[in-house]
């Protein structure tokens, strides 16, 4: 996210964007696996297996989407500040 004078994306920008795009897929998979798995385990312990697992899966997706959103906004903030700095110079 370095400003490099011209408005060309640096390799670091390209990499961060690409990483973000591919990471969201793995994040959602991880969210489903982890919290779906926890829901499944809780369901085994307390009964109502399907309800616990469904809740876990939805919770996992929501968390993964939130994480993606937070990461992208953090990236966006960095870019915006560096662009603003460019304009002021």
């Amino acid at each position: 996210m370095k400003a490099n004078g011209a408005n060309f994306p640096t390799p670091e920008d390209t990499r961060a964007t690409a990483d973000m795009a591919w990471r969201s897929v793995s994040n959602i998979t991880a969210g489903l696996l982890l919290y779906g798995g926890i829901g499944w385990l809780l369901g085994r312990k307390f009964g109502h297996q399907d309800a616990f697992m469904a809740a876990g899966l939805i919770f996992g997706i929501v968390l993964a989407l939130y994480l993606t959103y937070a990461r992208v906004s953090a990236m966006d903030r960095n870019t915006t500040t560096s662009e603003r700095r460019n304009d002021q110079q």
Partner: peptide, 12 residues
Amino acid sequence: LAPLELLQLVVT
């Protein structure tokens, strides 16, 4: 989020 990210890094 940390366990989710760890799972993402190591497994998925």
